[in-house]
Design a binder for these strands. Structure first.
Lengths: 403, 403
DNA sequence: TGATATTTTTAAAATAATTTATTAATAGAA
DNA sequence: TTCTATTAATAAATTATTTTAAAAATATCA
């Protein structure tokens, strides 16, 4: 067992207050002594002392003076940039991104890896090289890694790090979590990609300050992220928000999950491409007919739709309509104030939000849609990266790992 | 504006700690000094002093000695019974119950009123008499009312007290909230009945200690209550969990909400009775055919089903199956560990949980149902009452109203 | 039954925090 | 520019809280 080290109450309180200061600064950027004192329910002299300590420990620094409409201007304190590093590993079906952040959301380093996620041992093996490279680069720059976050698709239990969809990532001899922990010698936090995305939107994007938000990620499948009361909805094992496999058509297509008529089969990016190709085969008129059949992908369909192509617009409408129908259920269950559309299909902007809005108008009770706003993400791919980083920082500060 | 009373930091801290003690005691019954000190991150002498103060203020008292496997036995402290009172007003479609609780969950007084909730001004007028009677009785017993809670059906915004379904309860001249506040001269908290029910189950029923729970209330309509991370899921305006009006059948029956094929039309208690009557009209064999057609209600159908009546069992199966289908969606979205069945139909026990389980097995991904338990409430009608009371206590302690 | 180890509780000492008072800084008015 | 009102930061005084130490209580074991 552990050594029965007795940490004094005073030390614990101090540590809690310090983490509180870091949390405030992480969330709000710069803060004055008075603001911190109010937020932490402590006196200004106490906060002054804590800030001094955090400054000598290289966590915070004075970063200017704040505004005041009268009287002396307060000093502003903030997190010290470029010192502590967080490694974000973004694993998607197409590729892997390795991004190093500091605590002020600055990208210190980045390495994009052309590696496809398959449920195989080879994937982890191929990941080792790039991980070691970035780890080496971090060490060269004398950065102190405080945590590692990994966003990945599938059913991910954040408590255990087990991925129930890509089972090969959990092998006891060498799991993804172990690999990352070993490589960076820091605490590792795994999170589902859609949940990372909405967390990013909530902390740094359009959802900032909103406490009840949905984010819909349209990519290979459909992922729903939920912010409830300002926090990610995880459920018992981190599976919450699985909208893709609810049944919308009793006599629908067979889904990869083994069930029939799942939302995924109707509204994912891949289903959009399938619909387009089927339309072309039926001989429908479209600029897309001029393209090489094999080259038709989501981006192309969306481009043509934006250029006014009727087939593409019609099918985006269809997909958006089905999606809106599924989302109406989520609206009834979560009562959000905002829905953000993410993923490749988000590039279609109005062409996808409008049919979603229409479906929600049709299928939702008026009281649910009155104050509801539907919009397209402005952060793009950064949402997921920021969100993963935010998840790491939040977890570290909550689990008393730092400072 | 308000007087600029400066409350000292020390006083605020003390008040927070005192509320913390009351919270702990409310949740866990009796507590020792050491347990409280640990929970509050304070020293034992500090807690001793606070307990002394709370004792002289009549909030807590020593209630015995605890167990110890070795050494001196600790003194147990708990909330003082029969002193502070909470009034719970339970408004349902059938009747109104007025129940007075103390902080230890004891029923100090109770008045059942035969009054049907209609969206009319008359309802509030008729409520005045009983309210004044119970208020009078409380005063006679020298009880100190610290808060009033009201559970009621419909879309209820707990922040404003507005009921969006029963609009006549919000008249600016005389709203339900105003009426209660005026009658008992205390803070009033309104909450949706289904949410009160699951809160009761979570604090004092089968969901105690479980952090991710659904409760399904089958009555006139179908209500879903959600506990996420140990707290009620409210959403932006308290509308979250509206499962009754998601569309299950595109070509279904017209619902009272104006939409078509809502879950409510398929699985509510009233729909069960409709199904039974339709079956009898079709000439299906059943013990129920011997009953007076007008007298057939849910309770009777369930009784006959328990006695083995085939028609009743079949139709409970049908209703349970539809309900399970709807619940599967909720399971995918909330990832719960437990589902509790409440309301009249809960009396059918296995006859309703079994078809629900079957549907969930059919429509849910395996990872979602592996650890999922479905059960029938043991608290019955008390769940809602306890839950409303818990909501009041929690709100009071959070909003710094007491002590 | 008495000694011992263990745990709770209380009392006194030591430490830490807040309060109050003072000084510093700044915008606006004279 | 100088003065005044206002706000921020620091220093000294005061008050709270924790720590340490001692006393009280109790189950186990010899």
């Amino acid at each position: 067992m552990e050594a029965n080290y007795t940490v004094s109450i005073v030390d614990k309180k101090k540590s809690r207050l310090k983490r509180g200061i870091l949390k405030e600064m992480y969330r709000l950027g710069s803060r004055t002594l008075a603001q911190l004192a109010k937020a932490l329910h402590a006196s200004v002299p106490s906060v002054t002392m804590l800030i001094d300590e955090l400054a000598t420990e290289h966590w915070v620094q004075e970063i200017g003076t704040g505004a005041a409409q009268y009287g002396r201007k307060p000093a502003l304190f903030g997190l010290r940039p470029g010192n502590q590093a967080i490694v974000v590993v973004d694993i998607s079906v197409h590729d892997v991104k390795l991004v190093v952040f500091d605590l002020t959301n600055r990208v210190l380093d980045r390495l994009d890896v052309n590696l496809r996620l398959e449920d195989s041992v080879a994937f982890l093996e191929s990941l080792k090289g790039p991980l070691e490279e970035i780890s080496h680069r971090i060490r060269e720059h004398n950065l102190n890694i405080i945590g590692v976050g990994c966003a990945l698709p599938g059913l991910v239990d954040p408590r255990t790090g087990i991925n129930y969809t890509y089972k090969k990532l959990n092998r006891p001899e060498q799991s993804l979590q172990q690999l990352l922990a070993h490589c960076f010698d820091s605490p590792v936090y795994l999170i589902n990609d859609t949940k990372a995305t909405i967390l990013g939107e909530h902390r740094f994007g359009l959802a900032k300050g909103k406490n009840h938000v949905l984010s819909i990620n349209i990519d290979w499948g459909v992922g729903l992220g939920v912010i409830n009361n300002g926090e990610i909805l995880q459920g018992l094992a981190g599976f919450a928000g699985e909208l893709g496999h609810i049944q919308l058509q009793a006599d629908g297509e067979l889904c990869s999950c083994g069930k029939v008529g799942c939302l995924d089969t109707l509204t994912s990016a891949s289903s959009l491409v399938r619909r387009v190709k089927a339309g072309l085969r039926e001989g429908r008129v479209s600029k897309l007919a001029e393209e090489n059949f094999e080259d038709i992908d989501v981006e192309l369909v969306i481009d043509k739709a934006k250029a006014g192509d009727e087939l593409a617009i019609d099918l985006l409408n269809e997909v958006g309509g089905e999606l809106g129908k599924g989302l109406s259920i989520a609206v009834h269950l979560f009562n959000p104030e905002l829905i953000i559309v993410n993923g490749v299909v988000a590039k279609a902007e109005r062409l996808i939000t409008r049919p979603i809005e229409q479906a929600i108008d049709k299928y939702c009770l008026a009281d649910f849609r009155n104050k509801l706003v539907i919009t397209v993400s402005r952060l793009g791919e950064m949402a997921k990266l920021y969100g993963t980083q935010a998840y790491v920082v939040q977890s570290l500060l909550e689990h008393e790992e730092i400072p």
